[in-house]
Structure formats: C-alpha cells, structure tokens
Simulated scan of single mutants.
Amino acid sequence: MTSRTRLIVLLAAVAVLGCVGFASVLHASKRAGERDRSQPGGPSIAQGTVTLDGGKQMIFRNMAWGPYRDDLVSVSVTDPGGARTAAPVRCLRFYAAAGTGVCLGKVDGALGESYYAAILDSRLRTLREYPVAGIPSRARVAPSGHLAAWTVFVGGDSYAGSQFSTRTSILDLRTWTLTPSLETYTIVKDGRPYHAADMNFWGVTFADDEHFYATMATKGQTHLVRGDVAARTMTTVRPNVECPSLAPDGTRLVFKKRVPGLSPDAPWRLYALDLRTMRETPLAESRSVDDQVVWADDGTVLYGLAGDFGDDLWSVPADGTGRPVRVAVAALNPAFAG
C-alpha cells in the first residue's frame, strides 16, 4: 500500500468515525429531549429522587409510554394527577409500607425472560433479591414493614381463565426467612383439615406481623382464608372472595367477587366485607376490576382500570356510596410514603 493510499484510507476512517460520533451525539440529544417531554396528552415526568419516607407522597408504577415506562414515580398526595418524579427502579408489581418496598421485576436474558422479587429500603436500594417462578401478579408489605408477600403465575396468564397456577411466598425481613409457597401451610376448611392437588393461593393482605388474609382456590371455587404465620395455618372464612385488601383499621376488607351472569372475561365487581357482621356491600364501581385494591385512607380505595396510556388509577368510597373518580392516568400499584 502506497503512502497516498494509506492517507486516503486514514481520512476515510476519520470521516466514518466522525459521522458515527455525530450520530451518537444526535441520538443522545434526541433521547434527552424525549426525557424532557411528556407524552402528548400524558403526564409530565422528570427524573429525580424518590424515597419511601419522603413526606406525603404516593408512589406507583408509571404506565405512560416513553423512557420512564414501568419506572417507579412519586407524586404529591394532594395532586396525584400532577407532575411525576421518576426513580431508576423498574417494577412490574410494587408495594410499600413503613419504609420497606417490594418490587417484582423482569430480566431479559439470552434464554428468555426471568423474574425476581427485590426488597427495597426507604431509598429504593435493593437489600435482597429472590428469583420467582413466573409472571408477577400481586405484592404486599405488612404495615410494620417486617413481612413481604408476592404472588406469581406459574401457568396461564389470567385469573379469569379456567387453567392457571399461582405461587405465593411470604418473607420475614427480620430473619430473612422465606416461605416459598403457602401450599406448605396446613389448611382448615369448614372446620376440618383439607388438602387437594389443585389448591392455589394469591392476594395476601397483612393484618399485622402474625396474621394475614388471602384467596384460596380449589375445586372451581375461591375462598377467603385467614392465615397465621407462626402456626403456619390458613382457615377458610367465606367463599367467592378474591384479592382481599384489609382496611387500615382492620375491620373491613374490600375484594373482587365473581357475579353470576357477567362475561367470563369481565366477571368481577368490588365488594366490601364487614369482618364483624360478615355483611357484604357492593361498591359504586360497576366495571369489572381485576386488581387488588389499595386503601388511600379509612374510607377510600384505589384500583387500576385500562386507559388510553396504560392502566389508569381510580378511586371509589369503600362504603358503597359516591361514584368512581379517575385519580391519575397511566398509573398502577400505588403505595404511600410519609
């Protein structure tokens, strides 16, 4: 190769590298611009600091399409539809209480997708991470922050289907003792020990550090069960209860109930259950809600419904009065800090 040829090759290489560098800068600039712009008609989002003890904040999974899709974001509880602050933590399911969070996430690998449960501290830093056996479905933390629970699908993809299987785990954060599956608990059904190969459990809601409620499915029917962590037992309470959520005062549950005559694809209505009288009250939400509600306060629950930019967050009174109100667009799995 002559000196002239070598010079031409060198100049061509420099030109190519210059183009690549310019394109990279242009791409980065464009992405930065995207991160500064909100989705048309969607919420305003900017990256910042999000903590679980940062005052009166609501934290949830952002469902708006764009660079912050699935990130955890915070908003003021007084303006839940306002500007969002995004954290670099991505979750498919999320919940938090007393400065402890649980994040169910996904990893895309060479052999396909895998899923995990991460325990987060108040600054959303991962304390420990556990592999899970399937697609994330539900997550909860006890009011004290000492216990966490999560449910994943290990077969099928919907509670509405006739064939699915779940795995529900409980973790004691004080000792890092993991119960991988509630199927290892002793079941008491209608006053007698019960076991069946088709038992499934999901939708844990904690009363305290010793007791919880959940859903058990067997023989084509669902049941509300009350669990005892120390005794490792669950006792049936009532049929046709799914995804219970215990009120802050511990006196009521709001749950989704299958109502005869509705479409198999949208079979649920929200009900409140008085745990003293066992009286059920239908809530004022007439649409089918496939979610485990979150209590915003002693009288209001939040839940997700499909919207224009992903699931939207709605609220309704827990006593059967009032009407549903959309709280925030493109939002899911709320929890409260402060």
Results as ranks from 00 to 15, higher is better:
residue 52 L to C: 05
residue 145 G to C: 10
residue 27 H to K: 15
residue 294 V to C: 08
residue 183 E to V: 14
residue 307 G to I: 01
residue 81 G to W: 11
residue 53 D to T: 15
residue 190 D to L: 02
residue 69 R to K: 15
residue 126 T to Q: 12
residue 292 Q to R: 14
residue 68 Y to S: 10
residue 302 L to C: 10
residue 55 G to A: 09
residue 145 G to P: 14
residue 210 E to M: 05
residue 226 R to W: 05
residue 92 L to N: 10
residue 284 A to G: 07
residue 93 R to Q: 14
residue 44 S to H: 08
residue 205 T to H: 08
residue 160 A to Q: 15
residue 315 S to I: 11
residue 317 P to F: 01
residue 116 Y to F: 15
residue 227 G to E: 00
residue 265 D to N: 13
residue 137 S to P: 05
residue 260 P to I: 01
residue 29 S to D: 12
residue 321 T to F: 04
residue 116 Y to S: 10
residue 140 R to H: 12
residue 241 V to Q: 01
residue 197 A to V: 13
residue 313 L to K: 05
residue 229 V to N: 04
residue 19 C to Q: 14
residue 54 G to N: 06
residue 186 T to R: 14
residue 316 V to P: 00
residue 116 Y to T: 07
residue 54 G to M: 04
residue 146 H to F: 10
residue 73 V to A: 00
residue 2 T to K: 09
residue 104 L to M: 09
residue 185 Y to W: 14
residue 165 S to M: 09
residue 124 L to Y: 02
residue 25 V to I: 10
residue 219 K to R: 13
residue 303 Y to E: 10
residue 132 V to L: 03
residue 251 T to L: 12
residue 190 D to E: 08
residue 247 A to R: 01
residue 162 S to E: 13
residue 333 N to R: 08
residue 123 R to W: 08
residue 183 E to W: 06
residue 336 F to G: 06
residue 239 P to G: 01
residue 102 V to C: 07
residue 239 P to F: 04
residue 269 R to N: 11
residue 80 P to F: 04
residue 71 D to N: 15
residue 52 L to D: 03
